[in-house]
């Protein structure tokens, strides 16, 4: 029983740290708890903490609280935990198999690689093009965007708040592009815009909407606040450099 409680808790924790919607976390806890043989399963998830209470058939109640301090965007972990929990409740996977898989996912965390950052640079390029830049500006934005992602990833290894990471990345990108625009014929605004877009809090933004929709006001509001604060931080970073640069 003790082990099953840990299993349910781990699944919920993984989903939360990877940015899943609250209803998915609570539904997964409920589904896995029932499949594990608990008669009553209560789960309460917020972006910063997880509370579960599992009632065993013999009358014992197991309650666990897990504080979530760090989070990252990892949609493939959400997808995998989701299918694991389904397989577990359908009985096609045993408890041990599920535990091994969940542990592996936790160890993996959010794998970083240079490829990911370079591809992210491609995102910056696409955004410059979407906002009407030409291919050359897109190319420059792509390179700067990739550098920004490397910088932000590096900052993320230290206890730097997300807001400060975004402001630093944005300031760095703006300064770099301002320098480049003195030498090469690029439109500094369009290029900067593309490069800073790689830090858009897309996951927080979309889950906030979906959380609000399913009546999760607490996490919906806190995630909206998270997304908004990152946007403001990016704008602040850009604005500071533009002011200092004398435009």
């Amino acid at each position: 029983m003790e082990q099953l409680v840990g299993l349910v808790l781990l699944a919920g924790e993984l989903l939360l740290t990877c940015g899943a919607e609250m209803y998915r976390v609570e539904e997964t806890i409920e589904r896995m708890g029932r499949a594990a043989g608990f008669v009553q399963v209560e789960g309460f998830a917020t972006p910063t903490g997880l509370f579960i209470s599992l009632h065993a058939p013999n009358g014992r109640v197991y309650t666990r609280v897990r504080r979530i301090r760090r989070s990252h965007n990892n949609l493939s972990t959400i997808a995998e935990v989701n299918s694991l929990s389904r397989a577990f409740s359908e009985g096609t996977l045993t408890v041990d198999e599920v535990r091994v898989e969940l542990e592996r996912l936790r160890q993996e965390g959010a794998p970083e690689s240079l490829t990911r950052q370079l591809i992210g640079g491609g995102g910056a390029m696409a955004f410059t093009l979407i906002f009407g830049g030409n291919w050359f500006e897109g190319f420059i934005a792509g390179i700067v965007g990739a550098i920004v992602l490397v910088l932000v990833t590096w900052l993320d290894r230290y206890p730097v708040p997300k807001v400060l990471q975004a402001a630093t990345g944005a300031a760095f990108a703006t300064a770099l592009i301002m320098g480049i625009s003195n030498v090469l014929p690029i439109h500094p605004d369009l290029t900067t815009l593309g490069a800073v877009m790689v830090m858009t809090p897309g996951v927080a933004m979309t889950t906030a909407i979906r959380d609000l929709l399913s009546g999760e006001l607490l996490s919906g509001l806190s995630r909206s606040a998270e997304a908004l604060s990152v946007f403001v931080a990016i704008a602040t970073g850009v604005a500071m450099v533009i002011r200092l640069g004398g435009r």
Partner: peptide, 8 residues
């Protein structure tokens, strides 16, 4: 590309 950033 953004899908890759968010690890789809």
């Amino acid at each position: 590309t953004f899908a890759h950033i968010y690890r789809v």
